[in-house]
Simulated scan of single mutants.
Amino acid sequence: MDLGVSGTVSGTSALSPTVFHEPWWLEAASGGTFGEVIVESGGRLAGRLPFVVQRRARSFDVVRIPDLTHCLGPAIAAEFDPPGAVKSTKGIEICSQLIAQLPKAAHVWFRLHPETANTLAFDKAGFLSTVQWSVEIAPRPEEQLWKAMRDKTRNAIRRGGDRLTVTAWDEPGRFLDFYRDCLRRNDRRNHYDDATLAALAGEVLRRRRGRVLAAIRPDNTPEAAILTVWCKRREFYFMSARDTSAHFGAINLLIWRAIQDAAAANRIFDMDNIHVVDGALPNHLMLSGFGGNVVPRYCVSRSSALLTALQGVRRALGR
């Protein structure tokens, strides 16, 4: 196979297993600084692996996925990734060549996309593999989706529906203003770069690759809003905002509407990430309450010997 490196992609829709792999997303999420490595075979693109390089002090560069990008990882063309036993061998070969081309860095980290079947190529290259978890809800008739939920979740949706009207916001500024206002009211800071978030929300809505759903009170003020993004196969619960006085049923109502719309479009609804905080699972009950299956999300990381040694010294010193 011939190897190549490129900073842009053209005509690679088959090599974009998620919306996060698409060039327009990577451009907006990275401020135009993303790169990628590619593998070609017979003059055709066989695989690609996008990334960003974060410059750190003392030359400790980090190769990783861009901020606000929920998953990424190697994308392999279908013709080079056939089903059956051959799939593992060919996929590992292409992934290994992609990994070998990554820039030298003190640390490399990827959260791999849902279509990733294994981490063998990364394991072979000396990466540490870990697992995070998500909840996926497959498209089904509405009656089956409703029945699969917990009683408490259904009750919260009913209570939210009694008080609130769900509407779509087509202007990204409305969601961003509401999001910032909710942070201010809750005395919380924005952990995301505001310009990057604005660029992504604008591109998502302009390209009709996602939606903002808002729960509106009778006085026409918003109580909560969510942003979802999608590709052909999968819709991701991307982010949410809620007023300090919001009833918990407001977010449940919006998620339920998004699940219905995703099912109507034959898309899997991906709740994205079950959080683990200090030995607890703070959002597991809420996310799993909508039914669906708990599924793995593989993460891979590799640190240089120098960085590993320095981290060991810091731990020994209690820093």
Rank of each mutant, 00 (worst) to 15 (best):
L3G: 11
T8D: 13
T12N: 06
L15E: 14
S16P: 04
T18Q: 13
T18D: 08
V19K: 08
F20V: 04
W24Q: 06
W24G: 00
A28K: 05
S30M: 03
G32S: 03
T33S: 15
G35K: 05
E36F: 02
V39Y: 07
E40A: 05
S41N: 13
G42L: 01
R44Y: 04
F51Y: 13
V52N: 05
V53A: 12
A57S: 06
S59F: 08
R64D: 03
I65D: 14
D67K: 02
T69S: 13
H70K: 01
C71Y: 05
A78K: 08
A78P: 15
G84Q: 02
G84M: 05
A85G: 07
V86T: 03
T89I: 06
K90I: 04
G91M: 10
I92W: 04
I94V: 07
L98Q: 07
A100W: 00
Q101T: 02
P103F: 01
A105K: 01
H107V: 00
F110W: 10
R111H: 09
L112K: 09
L112T: 04
H113T: 02
P114V: 00
P114G: 09
E115P: 08
A117G: 05
A117V: 10
N118Q: 12
L120T: 03
D123T: 05
F127G: 00
L128R: 14
W133G: 00
S134A: 15
V135Y: 04
I137F: 03
A138W: 10
R140L: 07
E142A: 12
W146F: 00
R158V: 15
R158M: 11
G160V: 09
G161P: 08
D162L: 15
R163P: 07
T165P: 02
V166G: 14
A168P: 10
D170A: 14
P172V: 00
R174M: 01
F175T: 06
R180N: 10
D187M: 15
R188C: 04
N190V: 03
N190Y: 00
D193R: 03
A195H: 03
L197G: 00
A198Y: 03
L200N: 05
G202M: 04
G202I: 06
V204H: 07
V204E: 08
L205W: 02
A215Y: 03
I216M: 15
I216H: 03
T228C: 15
W230M: 06
C231H: 11
K232Q: 06
R233P: 09
E235L: 08
Y237W: 10
S240F: 09
T244Q: 10
A246P: 11
A246H: 05
H247T: 01
H247Q: 14
H247S: 15
A250R: 10
W256M: 13
R257K: 13
R257Y: 02
Q260M: 12
D261R: 10
A262E: 14
A265H: 00
A265F: 01
A265Q: 12
N266K: 06
I268K: 00
D270R: 05
D270T: 04
D272E: 11
N273H: 11
I274V: 14
A280M: 09
L285E: 09
G289D: 05
G289P: 04
G289V: 09
G291M: 09
V294Y: 08
V300P: 13
S303A: 00
S304L: 01
L306F: 01
L306D: 01
A309G: 12
R319K: 15
